[in-house]
Each structure stands twice: as C-alpha cells, then as structure tokens.
Design a protein around this nucleic acid. Sequence first.
DNA 1: CTGAAAGCGCTTACAG
DNA 2: CTGAAAGCGCTTACAG
Lengths: 328, 328
Amino acid sequence: MKKVSLKDIAESLGVSKALVSLVLNGKGDERGINKQTQERVRVKAKELNYVPNQYARGLRVGRTNTIGVIVPDVSNVFYGKLCKAIEQDAYAKGYNLIISNTYEDVQKEKKLITDLINRNIDGLILASSFDDKNELKGLKDNNVPLVLVDRVFDDLDVDAVSVSNIEGAEKAIEFLYKKGVKNPVCFSISPVYISSIAERVKGYLNAVTDKSKAKLFQIPHDNIDRAVHNALIEVRKGDYDGIFCANNNIAKSILKNASNTQDSINDIKIISFDDIEIFDLVNPKISSIAQPINEIGLKAIELLLGQIKNKEGHLVQKQVLETSLIER
Amino acid sequence: MKKVSLKDIAESLGVSKALVSLVLNGKGDERGINKQTQERVRVKAKELNYVPNQYARGLRVGRTNTIGVIVPDVSNVFYGKLCKAIEQDAYAKGYNLIISNTYEDVQKEKKLITDLINRNIDGLILASSFDDKNELKGLKDNNVPLVLVDRVFDDLDVDAVSVSNIEGAEKAIEFLYKKGVKNPVCFSISPVYISSIAERVKGYLNAVTDKSKAKLFQIPHDNIDRAVHNALIEVRKGDYDGIFCANNNIAKSILKNASNTQDSINDIKIISFDDIEIFDLVNPKISSIAQPINEIGLKAIELLLGQIKNKEGHLVQKQVLETSLIER
DNA sequence: CTGAAAGCGCTTACAG
DNA sequence: CTGAAAGCGCTTACAG
C-alpha cells in the first residue's frame, strides 16, 4: 500500500538516500558518483516503480514547476483555446498547469487564488473577474509572479497581455457602416467593469457617427438568452440595422434566438468580437474581430517565466496585441 | 519575501506552533483551547496574511483534497461540460481539481498520470486515450482511487461511468430510417480502439438493415476536415442519404465543409452523437443523441469519493447511463 | 566517491 | 489548557 520512497531504494541497495536522490536528479556525473552505482540505483528505482513525492520536494526546494491559470470559463471557446495555447507551451518548457474556472464568481476567484498560493505555484496567469484591483494585493504581498491576460487593470503595476479592444471595436463599427448599416447598436455583457468589455463599448461609442442614435444593451452574463431576446425585440422596434456583439456568447445567443423565433435576421448585419467557428457555419455568416489567441498565450508564458527566473530584475510590461477583422 | 509560517505566528504570540495549528484547523474547541487565545491566533494569522503550506500539510497527512481529471480535450464541448459538472460538484464537497488534456497523446497521458500521482492527488477521474488497459496498472500499483469516464475498459476491474453507446447509435439509425433515409453511412473517428467510438460503430452496424449497404468512414481525429471532405465526396457518389456522426466534431466538420463548398446538404439527413448548441443554430438543424453529462460527472465524483473514503470496502461499480434522442 | 545531518512547514500523538 | 518532539520525503551544504 505504502508508496516507495528514496529510503526504500537506499536501504535495498545499501547506499544513502542522498546518493539516490543525486543520481535520480541527474547529478550523478557532476558529483562523480560511480557509474555502476548510478545504474544500480536507476534500475532499482524503476523496479520498485518509484515516483518522487512532489510535496516533499516542493517543500524542500520551494519550486514546483507548476503554473496556475485562472479564467472565467474554459468552456467559452476563447478561454478554451487560450488555455490550450498556454498549456502546450508551458508543457514544452517543463511546467505543469493547474487550470481553474471562476464562472465570474469573485468569491470563488479569491478562494482559487489562495488555494493556488497554498499549493506553492511558481506563478499565475489570470483573466480576472475582479472589479477591484486591490483584490490582487494578496498576490503581490505573497510575491507570486503574476501575469494578467485578456482582462487587465491599467493602473496596476503588473505584467499584462491584452488586445487593443477599443480599436477592434472601432474596426467592427466601421465595417458595419461600410456594409451599408445606418444605425448600429451594441450588445454589451456584464460585468460592466471588465476591462475588455468596457473598452469594446468605448470603441463602439467612439465609432458611431450619430451619437444621438447610439444604443447600448446590457446583457447579464448569467442570463444571456432572455436578455438578448428582449434586446432583439427593441432592435426590431427601432430602426436599427446592425449589431456589434461584445463577445461570442452574445452572438451565439442572437443566432439561437433568431432560430427559435424563426426570425431570419438577414436584414440585420451582425459582427462580433471573438472569431469562433460557428460564424462560418450559419446563415448569414457572421463577421468578427479575431484575437491572436496563441500570441496572447505565448506572451503570457514568456512574461511569467521572465518573472520567475529573474525575480528582482524583471521590468513590468504591458503588451497590447492587435486584432484582425474577419469579413464574411 | 519569505512566506509567513506557523512558526511566525507562534513566536509573535508566544505560544507553540502546535497550538496555532490546532486553532487554525478548527480543533480549538475540541481540544479545549482558551477562547481568547484562539481569537488572538486567528487575528494574528489574518494580520500576517498567513496561508498554510499545502505541501507541508500534504506531506504530513497524506491527503491533499485534490482530484485529478484527465480528458482528451476540454475545448471539445462534451468534455468541457463534463469538467464543469465535475468541478462544481467537487468544489462544493471541498475538493480542488487539477484538469489536464491529453489531446489523444498516449505519451502525454502517461506523463500526466505520473505527474498527478507525484502530486499526491486523492483520486483520478480519467477519460483515457490508451489502447491498452495495462497502461493503467501503475495507478493500481500506486493504489490511487480511479474512476474511468466516457471511455472505459470492460475487462478491467475499475469503477467506470459511461453511456449505452450501442443503444444510442441504434436509436440514431432507427431515427434516420423513420425519417425516410434509405442508406445511412457512419462517419467514425480515430483512434478506433476508444470504447465509446467502437460501441457507436457497433450500434450502427447492428441497426443497419441492409448490411451489404453498410458503409463506414474512418476520420482521423487530427485531420478531421480533410477526411470529412473526402468522405462527403464518396457519399455523394454513392446513393447514400443519411449520415450518423460518431461525435460532435465530425458533425461540425460536415457543416463546415458544406458551408465551404456551398453544398446545401439538405438532401442528406444527419444525426450526431453528442448534443451541442450549434445543432440548433444551423440550417438544416441536426438531430442528436444527447448524453447525460451532468449525471456522468456526479456519478464519477460519487464513485471516487466512495473509494477515497472507504478504501478497502468499496465495491467496483460500472455505471452505464442512458442517452436520449433529440429530434430536430 | 559516499554518508550523516539539518531542515523545508506542517500535524499529531504524548505528556503534563 | 498548552508545549516539546517526532516525522512525513525530500535536497543540499558539509565533511571525510
């Protein structure tokens, strides 16, 4: 029942635990340990099916080669892909990931952060749902390397990777105008204080030519379909002919609603932030503002490892990547 | 820089580490520790921003309240939802999750399992990509509580939760016939040895009335679109008028291909295993065989906790849940 | 070339 | 009501 430890190997071979540890960590040659002894250790370790206890190791060396990732919801395609990008790169670099979802629950996010710190993660990549940047103070106090992604706090002195949401939204609205739309509305999503969403709304407001006609619908993230349903009714009542969706969940909900109500929505031009495959499969196809998801993930890892490996000398960086318009 | 430990609290209060540990673990009353002392400890712990080191704790008590979850790919909606169900239930019961993806890579799966064992997880929920059940021997040797989900090994003496894939596939084919389809084909997906997929293919073959007309296309999981493209050409060449998709990725690829080639596919009746929201948003809508994802997750946790809490007395259970036909 | 010992931070019998 | 001590499994100076 009991797991095999260094001691078991050492005793069965008549050597010390220290020697076994050294050999198994590849420091045998460096320390000039007899080749044959090394081989005997390795053979025995395999024979006994030895797996080192990471808790003991982590306790001793203070590193765990583990990176925490907290996102709102991996089942949202954007975060799913982001996690995939992060995971594959981190994995290649010898790190493991602990991925967790907050589902926009601030209390859960707090608890998750504490949990991860307790687990002695080497660093954290965070797409936060916090409305208050002070919630992140605990992380700084604990000196945990941190990179914010997607959702950032401008006035916080922390590494961050995001996209130019304002410009992206402006591009979207300009595209609608180019396609003949006269009065575009914006379907935003709660929580309103999320930086990426707030910026997209700002971009919309910037780009609308007739400000008096600007119209914003707030869709609560936890009751999207119903709110979109009502918003669509409003849209039909007014003389609106274009919709800018602040994220992919809203666009999906529009499609769902239209499908349920047999509303063709062919007369409304729709564009959405985030490019997801559905947009290619529906009729009419939906244009989008695509984010460079892989680059976001790679950059986040790069910044995080920079902090981990160079704790004092690291300079805070705020990366803002460009979006691209996918016309359909 | 240094993290706060029990010792720091103890010293600053002039009490022992043991007392602090007891109080912070809620055993103060039980052990009859002075209420005021308890309060002082808690206040000081908060003041110093103390977080217990889980590695030290895990090392000492041998439990970690952490469950490992390994799936092929969380960005596949089925697994994404499954993880969500598992996570929410586990979280409510005081467990944390470490979720990892194999992307059908057997080597990665082996490494992940070893990693998780090293982390002293209390148990593992696994949707395995292994073709050989012997790969799981290491887990049994290490006595790690294990529950297989979705993909199971019939002849392995391990807890498992799956659905009746054969009957589900049969229902799908019967539905196609009912809708007037004469010659349904099956788009299966690699790896072929995955139990759930193999069973769905079996169900297809069972239900096809004219066995001489049965036609199976093998779609490799890592090159779906191209293979589906070619398969669709074959379908058009023959007199096939119905397609049974072994999973949702295949159905999505059919939609994508049809969209790209401007093929309306209105004359082909399609049904897919797994019910995903896209099926409601496209034209024509796609019928499906839905799996009870939440129940799978809850049952998996239930079985796992059964093993964890009653290591010796636990009886191996193989749960097979029912699917349901979603007609569209 | 190898071993003995200390210590990471915690919990838990044991003692008083 | 509280403390001293052992020990979980590992790594790393230090000594020889």
